[in-house]
Simulated scan of single mutants.
Amino acid sequence: MSTQTNSLTYDLGGDLTINRLGYGAMQLTGFGVFGEVADRENAKKVLQAAVAGGVNFIDTAEAYGPKYNETLIAEALQPYASGLVIATKGGFNRPGPNKWVPNGDPKYIQENIEGSLQRLNVDTIDLWQLHRFDPKIPVEETLAPVAEAVKAGKIKYVGLSEVDVKQIEQAEKVVPIVSVQNLYNLGNRQWESVLDYTVERGMAFIPWFPLASGPDKLKDKIQQIAEAHQATTAQIALAWLLKRAPNILLIPGTSSIEHLQENLKAADIELSDEEFEQLSM
């Protein structure tokens, strides 16, 4: 497990330089990630504050709303700042709040891609991610329109979400993969082997739900380290991830400018090797 001091930037695909502390826009939606956000003007201000605070990597999805989140980002941030990378996803049906149904039908995937281009108002999607493998449809069929979109210049890079190593290798037979977005945080490291694989392969690893600070047995340790750094436990959880591996891109989400600014300050925290190891036990 890494304990090196890592750069705070990462070159996605080798050429898109990203500040590793980004922003996940999922919370800027209605209850259950469904429908319009309650306070649209506040949501726009949060997105604008993120970019003003140095964020140049924003993660969204067709399924967030659905659709509302992408249009919100375009409304809040256009004209887009130079170097801003917006990642989106496709491949989920949303029948209602908190309901997520994988849909890998090629026609649906193509609709997702074309819709995201329109809603984000871009000619090229910087990073398009397959939200989930659909067990009912071979991934080779699901990714066929994605590969076509890459050839057509509509997608620059492709990523996957919630996958194992075998699935990554399967997808790469259809289209190059530059990133993996899996559940991973200080308290849940079930995808440790996938993270290590992405490090070896030069792929980005984007933990979702990054702010979980660990099981109860870690609370005292986290609190002690947080106090030593005059930081919050959430900031320590993010700092641990930044130190864990140089390819980790963080996308903590919030609907509060105050919490956003708190999260961004995690980039200033440098855990010692000893602190890192204490939290990693």
Rank of each mutant, 00 (worst) to 15 (best):
N247T: 04
E148F: 07
S179A: 15
Y10E: 05
S256A: 08
D196T: 10
L143N: 03
L249F: 03
G90D: 12
A87Y: 04
Q223W: 09
E162W: 00
E140I: 09
D123H: 06
P97M: 09
L117I: 13
V33S: 14
S280E: 13
W128F: 15
I18R: 00
N56K: 01
E270Y: 00
A237S: 15
A49C: 13
L120I: 00
S213H: 10
L211F: 03
V194Q: 00
I58G: 00
W208Y: 14
I225M: 06
L186T: 04
V33T: 13
A226Q: 04
W191A: 14
G35H: 04
R40G: 14
A147L: 05
A171P: 04
L72V: 07
K154F: 10
E162S: 15
Q27N: 14
E41V: 13
E140H: 12
L16S: 10
T232F: 10
T198H: 07
G91F: 11
L143H: 06
W191T: 08
A63V: 13
S193R: 09
T29Q: 08
V158K: 01
L211T: 15
Y184F: 13
Q223M: 13
V122Q: 02
N93G: 07
A245F: 02
K265S: 15
A25E: 05
A50W: 02
G53L: 04
E36M: 06
E169N: 11
H259N: 14
A52K: 06
I125Q: 06
A226E: 07
G187L: 12
D134E: 06
A212R: 03
